[in-house]
């Protein structure tokens, strides 16, 4: 049964502490002393940073960790034993997830849950309950509303918490959410009329005027666009945009040997790195910086939509904030279409 109730902000840490006896709890916690926030395991006594600061790294880190062991192996005379690693040991709940980050998971699902299914990712996904925090917009960089995301009640959330005076209205949405709802019951009160009203009228400042659409004609219409020239001229190739992006999911695979055994692990990789596609015999299909910049934007704006029916951008704006020259995907998309209009004249 759907649970709706009012929870006091001051009760939150206590509630999370109680839940952490049963589930692993992940929440936005302070990172350093400069006001930054990161999603990590909540331990009793910690202070949650629920508020107007986006975690530096997106929610994907909880499902595709930056470095992840795939298996361990051990060798004897003529035998090798391979033991798949255990992705997680407990069911989990993530509190305070933002709509953009949650929407990105649905895009990553398209890749990691199709055959052959990535079992480690699936296990993390199915064993994690997602509690969204309705987002009022976290600054001028936010444009999730432009890509069809509801920042207040985002699709993919199991429970939504909507900030009201001194607390939240908590609404369970899915079956998983209802199960969590039973653990929250004790801290919930019947909402008052004004509280309900505030929750209903909660709105976000997320921009809805960013246009990421690609022109008709697919990749060939924009292949020679000057957008790539412009964006690559400013880009220093640091790749921070791919690190902070909630939808980027490329990885590299490495082995390590320890004595008679060892491990294989995967780690995030970036299409902005020159050796990303460099082959053993020295050939590289994308040797130029411009070709790599084009690949990054084309993947988001053209190739992913062609394969999965949606742009691979959720409008969180982290790339533009993190980029040393503040390049935002919206301007690149504008420039990309501009070129096409020019050549149509």
């Amino acid at each position: 049964m759907t649970v709706i109730g009012y929870m006091k902000r001051s009760a939150l840490e206590g509630v999370l502490g109680d839940i952490s006896d049963k589930l692993e709890v992940i929440a936005p916690l302070p990172s350093g002393d400069k006001g930054a926030v990161e999603l990590r395991r909540f331990e009793k006594g910690a202070q949650v940073s629920i508020g107007p600061v986006k975690p530096m790294l997106p929610l994907k880190t909880i499902f595709l960790p930056p470095v992840e062991q795939i298996f361990r192996f051990s060798k004897s005379e003529n035998e090798t034993t391979v033991t798949a690693s255990t992705p997680i040991t407990r069911d989990r709940v993530v509190f305070g997830a933002l709509g953009c980050d949650i929407a990105a998971l649905a895009l990553i699902d398209e890749v990691f849950l199709r055959e052959p299914v990535d079992e480690a990712y699936r296990e993390r996904r199915t064993r994690t309950t997602i509690v969204a925090l309705a987002c009022e917009g976290q600054g001028p960089e936010c444009f999730c509303a432009s890509v069809g995301i509801d920042p207040v009640r985002p699709g993919g959330a199991d429970v939504v918490m909507i900030p009201v005076k001194d607390g939240f209205i908590v609404e369970t949405i899915t079956k998983k959410g209802e199960q969590l709802g039973t653990m929250l019951q004790g801290a919930l009160r019947d909402p008052t009329g004004p509280q309900k009203k505030t929750a209903r009228s909660f709105t976000s400042t997320s921009r809805s005027d960013v246009d990421l659409s690609a022109p008709a004609g697919g990749w060939s219409a924009v292949w020679e666009s000057e957008a790539w020239e412009d964006a690559s001229a400013r880009c220093i190739g640091c790749g921070i945009c791919t690190v902070v992006c909630p939808t980027c999911h490329c990885f590299d695979v490495h082995d390590e040997r320890h004595g008679n055994g060892g491990e294989r692990f995967r780690k995030w990789d970036s299409c902005m790195a020159v050796n990303f596609t460099m082959m053993a015999h020295g050939e590289n299909p994308r040797p130029q910086h411009r070709a790599r910049v084009r690949q990054r934007y084309m993947h988001k704006l053209v190739y992913f939509p062609e394969n999965h029916g949606a742009v691979a951008c959720v409008g969180c704006g982290r790339c533009a904030v993190a980029c040393p020259n503040r390049t935002g995907i919206g301007e690149v998309a504008d420039r990309m279409r501009e070129r096409e209009e020019d050549s149509n004249e």
Binding site: H249, F251, T277, P285, H299, Y303, E306
Partner: peptide, 19 residues
């Protein structure tokens, strides 16, 4: 075609040419 690849199952993201 030959492209650098890691996973071989369409997830590691490096062997695409276009879509």
């Amino acid at each position: 075609l030959e492209m650098k690849m890691k996973c071989g199952v369409g997830k590691c993201g490096r062997c695409n040419i276009g879509a």
